[in-house]
């Protein structure tokens, strides 16, 4: 973990509101493990003072890529970054994904632009399985050629039916499970909105499988000091049967059985 002033190599639109930021980060990029993230200091002047966390999409040699969607105050400040600009990043942070179970079929599940957080794991896993990508519309289904080039079978689902099956990503997952998938001993690696993660975790628990969920929580320092990004986990030894973990430090990847979901997630 270190703070590094990186150099922007490229900053391209990736369709719609999505952008891909490529950084020269010789101190951090070689250290990144699948599922880890970096904490980016927004370009000045910005009255948004905190860093912003981003999953690492790709890390190749000294270079790393961040795939993001320009939606809020923080990402708006990033839109004008140009090749050659300096950018301070802190990382790599978080625990990352574990190695795959030997006898399971890896199954990736991504919602939103969660596929970006799964790419390094997809490249690292010893077996190629099935990847379920869900989004609101065709423009939200990203990186399909990249995953297919690694040997993954990608199944897309959109809520408006503009690409793949119409519905939620979990609808496609359920159809696959009942069509023989459950006999293949799936092990899930998932990143996306909390509702999707909870649903994937529920399928895994019901089937007796494992699901590794890359969780997104409102975050402050990124290193475990501020205690903003805390998540309840099951803890039989604690009063009430739960305790906090810090998603930035003990996460962001949590096994579904440990997570205590709140009512509205």
């Amino acid at each position: 973990m270190k703070v590094e002033t990186t150099t922007v190599l490229a900053h391209a639109t990736y369709g719609g509101d999505y952008r891909c930021l490529e950084l020269e980060a010789p101190g951090i990029a070689p250290e990144v493990r699948p599922g880890q993230f970096v904490h980016i200091r927004l370009p000045a002047p910005a009255d948004a003072i905190l860093r912003r966390p981003f999953s690492v999409f790709r890390a190749d040699g000294d270079r790393l890529q961040i795939l993001y969607k320009a939606v809020g105050r923080g990402t708006a400040a990033m839109r004008h970054l140009q090749p050659g600009d300096g950018l301070s990043i802190l990382g790599p942070l978080g625990n990352g994904f574990p190695a795959a179970a030997a006898d399971a079929l890896p199954v990736l599940v991504a919602g939103g632009y969660g596929m970006a957080a799964l790419y390094l794991q997809a490249r690292t896993l010893p077996r190629r399985g099935i990847a379920f990508f869900g989004g609101a519309k065709a423009g939200d289904i990203l990186c399909v050629p990249e995953f297919e080039a690694l040997g993954w079978e990608v199944r897309a689902t959109t809520q408006d039916g503009s690409r793949g099956e119409r519905g939620l990503v979990t609808d496609a997952l359920d159809a696959w499970l009942s069509g023989g998938g459950r006999d293949l001993r799936p092990e899930f690696f998932a990143c996306g909105p909390n509702g999707m993660l909870r649903a994937v975790g529920g399928r895994a628990e019901a089937g007796g499988w494992t699901a590794w969920l890359s969780m997104d929580r409102h975050m402050g320092c990124g290193v475990g000091a501020c205690l903003t990004c805390v998540q309840k986990i099951r803890d039989p030894d604690a009063p009430g049967g739960w305790s906090w973990v810090r998603i930035c430090r003990e996460g962001p990847v949590m096994e579904c059985r440990t997570v205590v979901w709140e009512g509205d997630e």
Binding site: L50, G220, T228, V230
Partner: peptide, 12 residues
């Protein structure tokens, strides 16, 4: 309980 912090103009 969460949320525990919120960023405001030049502040937290």
């Amino acid at each position: 309980p969460t949320p525990r912090t919120v960023e405001t103009a030049s502040g937290l």
